[in-house]
């Protein structure tokens, strides 16, 4: 529908509103790899999903320092821009949701590979 809006200015307003809406509702993430809902999520989407999908976040677990080092590495080697005042929020988000869990030396076989009849 928004493609039909001819007026440039109107389109901008619509776009901004829609984007806010999508981000707030999490709809824009699709269903495959869902980044954790959080007030800071829009900052993470804005800064961290331009080059690769958010699945590189959801697959990983790091300490705050680990995330910071990863960001510095991407800034040095991969063309990531300075996050400025948003860095703190992005790091808070990453630390909050994607922190390492302690686990044994070798985990049990993944649930989807287990027998259904296993009592």
């Amino acid at each position: 529908m928004i493609f039909l809006l001819k007026n440039r200015r109107m389109r901008r307003v619509w776009a901004a509103l829609l984007l806010l809406l999508f981000c707030a509702s999490g709809w824009s993430q699709g269903t495959t790899f869902k980044l954790a809902e959080d007030p800071d999520l829009p900052y993470v989407i804005a800064h961290c999903t331009a080059c690769h999908s958010g699945s590189l976040i959801t697959q990983n677990r790091m300490t705050r320092d680990g995330w910071l080092k990863t960001i510095r590495w991407m800034q040095k080697e991969q063309g990531l821009w300075p996050l400025g005042e948003h860095e703190e929020r992005v790091l808070n988000y990453l630390e909050r949701h994607y922190f390492p869990q302690t686990s044994g030396r070798r985990k049990a076989i993944a649930p989807h590979l287990m027998p259904k009849q296993n009592p």
């Binding site: 993430q29 989407i45 800064h47 999903t49 080059c51 958010g54 300075p82």
Partner: peptide, 16 residues
């Protein structure tokens, strides 16, 4: 701050 760094065609889309 980063807008100018974004090459054309690059979109902060979340996920497919």
């Amino acid at each position: 701050v980063f807008h100018k760094y974004l090459p054309p065609g690059l979109l902060p889309v979340a996920l497919a």
